[in-house]
Design a protein around this nucleic acid. Structure first.
Lengths: 253, 253
DNA sequence: TTGCTTTTCTTTCTGCTGCTAACATAACGT
DNA sequence: ACGTTATGTTAGCAGCAGAAAGAAAAGCAA
């Protein structure tokens, strides 16, 4: 058996059992305990499992998120700032929508310790992040799970969103333009975003500065439906000015 | 038993009983009291429980249900066998419902490499597990996320389930009785299970042997709606015979 | 409160098990 | 044959569990 193959099988094994001893694994795979220890060290370094004395245990929230983490490494620092700023705008008693995405995920991280908040989201990663926050009620929209992200979409998602109304919706977008408004390159995802915007009293778009001024094929929303826009300080003054002239309150963080 | 494993089980134990003495715990786990004290110190440092003189009590939020990760360490091996057996019953082209739970979670692990399957689930942990499986389409029911588990429940869950029909539903249960059928201790979770049963052509109950013969307060389904029951070989012949007489096809693994 | 007794906690020591690291050996590809 | 990689082996080290003793806390009586 190849070393890499064995490593993969160890991960598989432990994900099923949740816990395993070094001895147990060495017997299972007929290799020396030292070999298992080496494997475990590497596996831990890769972040799949957590080692303990005598064995290995499934980490807390470890259920792998490869493509997600890759995307999330881009401009994380800017997104964190945006997330923190957005979180400041959420008050006790608010109900909010968090759109699926990496920027909105950062918002979730910053509201974990708030209380008396209801969060509606179509992102199961955001839902999992907020799961243990005692003061937060999480409502997940149903729908089809998209493999490359943690997003739920489709008819069920739209149906649930239609039946809800929230104070604030935090929407991510791949393109926002001071005149053309919100646009998206993928038609499939448009209806859900439109429902989110309709369901909220206040629409807050969160996006890093590289998306400003972009235009894609499918129209999501005119600019006048966007109340606020939170973006990074990397945005140029010209861009900021243009959005201001379109009646958007722009917040730099 | 691994130290980390024992610590997890202590947390589980105390979450069930709300309070426990050092003596009690040392007898439960057959270790020295000093060891328990050391464990408790660490557990307290991690913030899971609060120590007192003579024992330990639950921290802030009191949760009667043990958390998912801890619950999953009980009878894992039996649940794996059940999960593997259940997975064998799923064929290419099937659409199935996977109820939230630790046994059904094992099913998910065993179907990851199947193709052309549609899985409907109210468990975001199951959804996350199947996310990367190319051949599997995952539909998540919406709903309110329950802390300490990964279950979605409520009106939205039921609405989505009403609009679906699947070939097979795999249902977990805390109690199944050969005469009284499926029952549940928590009223809130009953409607979703009923919808799941209604939505399926074939109802397959999966549960470890300790749940056989149990009866709880709230009725979920009469026994004649249950087509098959998969449980562990630990089940007694008497129990197996009783279910057979009730017209349930019982599968031992 | 004060003093006494009992229980529980902390600290320290010791034996044991598992861990790390270095080296040796075997398998593999060039 | 050589270097590379994976695996096994060994020795010294680190961390865990049990035991015991002194310290601290709780309970109780006057």
């Amino acid at each position: 058996m190849l070393a890499a193959e064995r490593k993969a099988k160890i991960i598989e094994f432990v994900k099923r059992t949740n816990i395993a001893t070094v001895t147990q694994l060495s017997e299972e795979f007929n290799v020396h305990e030292a070999t298992i220890r080496r494997d475990l060290s590497e596996i831990e370094r890769e972040g799949h499992l957590r080692r303990t004395h005598g064995g290995v245990i499934l980490g807390e929230g470890i259920h792998s998120e490869p493509s997600f983490t890759v995307r999330a490494t881009e401009r994380v620092e800017e997104k964190q700032r945006i997330g923190e700023k957005a979180a400041e705008m959420i008050q006790e008693g608010d109900s909010i929508i968090l759109d699926s995405g990496t920027t909105t995920f950062q918002i979730a991280k910053y509201i974990a310790n708030k209380t008396n908040i209801t969060v509606v989201t179509n992102d199961i990663n955001i839902a999992a992040e907020l799961r243990d926050s005692k003061g937060i009620k999480v409502i997940v929209t149903g729908g089809v799970l998209y493999p490359e992200s943690f997003m739920l979409n489709g008819m069920f998602t739209n149906d649930v969103l239609k039946k809800l109304h929230v104070h604030k919706a935090f929407i991510g977008t791949p393109a926002i333009h001071p005149k053309k408004g919100l646009t998206h390159f993928e038609e499939l995802f448009v209806p859900a975003k439109m429902e989110m915007i309709n369901a909220a009293s206040e629409v807050i778009v969160v996006t890093d500065h590289t998306k400003l001024g972009g235009v894609s094929l499918h129209m999501v929303s005119p600019i006048n439906k966007v109340d606020k826009l939170i973006t990074g300080e990397e945005a140029s003054d010209t861009q900021i000015q243009q959005f201001k002239e379109s009646g958007v309150e722009i917040i730099i963080s």
